[in-house]
Design a protein around this nucleic acid. Structure first.
Lengths: 210, 210
DNA sequence: TAGGTACTGTAACACTTGTTACTGTGTAAG
DNA sequence: CTTACACAGTAACAAGTGTTACAGTACCTA
């Protein structure tokens, strides 16, 4: 675990802190599509992402979903952070976007490290900063963009996060993430294909020019 | 200034920190409607709200606006916080919702206090927590609510923040905040009036039952 | 008091998105 | 091979929201 932590967080944290993380945290591996945390769960720890990607989803009372943002290597979940400090339950769902490895740090260490390590404080602030920015972007998209533009943004992000221009996904799954219906996504995707911006196969979308 | 700080933040900060804030910060008073910070401005300090209320707005490239949330006494602006730490420009606009008093703290003190005062750290974290929650609510509203429900939520919030069931506002101003058109707001307000939930006068909306 | 301006009400229409329904096709299991 | 099922394409329509246009009314100022 130490070497993986060193690789992903070495440039952020001093040796001493890395050692503390390694000795108190537990390494977890999850497969693509696996649920990591559910809305309403008590938050027991804070995940530090070593490899892979996680998508963070919001859900309303009717069970309707919306993708908030993706987390990548070196990220942590500010919403979780939030819950740790507030001792509240999770407001979001986290699902592995790809096969993912992360270190789970017990919340009891949070407060201690915040006082002890400046690098940890900066990391926590930086995480809040990133997450607020992502939320702002999500709000911009919802408020100012039409569905076709939101779809393009989504496809770009998805291709980038997975490092693959071929997106493995069904229209229905995209519809869930963007909180719309399958028919709408099929319609818009077909239009994008006619415009030569993507190409469509069953269960797969190839990004050409977005 | 000391007494006002004591009143608004005394239950949060130790005496020593209050004194530091009083000696390094500057007291500002702005009238309702006055702009406090503009998108793209460099952030020179962090505002601690003593009285009144501030509304935080987002704007896209076309100049279209969207209300993000309100700040009240005892709050600070996490977006500003964000900018201070990141040394970036403001991503939002802040406008006085009512006559407002606040203390502006120079950003240079931020880092110092974060290491020195646990109460300050907690305040900063708590601020991030609150703002993330507000952003989540904003996202929920955008993604899951229709315009009529968003309007009701807006009227409720506005009445609460101003402590007055009579809202002084034109339909056009509401339309800006919700990023829609005046006609749409007029239409929905009229419907709410017919349902007996509000009553309408020129430049004023009285909340009856929302 | 007259004229101008800001605000509100309303109709008619356009556009985007959501819904329903049905068809066809690729894929896996029996 | 064939049956079943998940996935995708498409049309027709419904609903919500945005746009344009115009009329009426309150309010301010000359």
């Amino acid at each position: 675990m130490l070497s993986e932590l060193q690789e992903a967080f070495g440039f952020l944290f001093e040796k001493e802190l890395i050692d503390e993380i390694a000795s108190t945290g537990t390494l977890k591996k999850v497969s693509a599509g696996e649920k990591i945390i559910e809305i309403g769960d008590y938050v027991t720890g804070m995940p530090l992402l070593i490899s892979g990607a996680i998508k963070i989803l919001r859900e309303d009372d009717d069970g309707d979903e919306l993708l908030l943002y993706f987390l990548e290597r070196g990220d942590t979940c500010a919403m979780t952070l939030n819950c740790c400090l507030g001792q509240t339950r999770s407001e979001i769902r986290a699902v592995a976007e790809s096969d993912t490895t992360f270190v789970m740090v017990p919340i009891s260490k949070m407060e201690e490290w915040t006082g002890k390590y400046k690098s940890w404080r900066n990391f926590v602030f930086e995480s809040y900063h990133s997450r607020l920015s992502e939320m702002l972007e999500t709000i911009d998209a919802l408020a100012f963009l039409n569905m076709d533009q939101r779809l393009m943004r989504y496809l770009r992000d998805k291709a980038k996060i997975n490092g693959d221009e071929n997106i493995q996904s069904t229209h229905q799954q995209i519809a869930y993430d963007l909180h719309t219906s399958r028919v709408v996504i099929s319609r818009l995707l077909k239009k994008l294909e006619l415009d030569g911006r993507i190409s469509l196969q069953r269960n797969q979308i190839k990004v050409i020019d977005l």
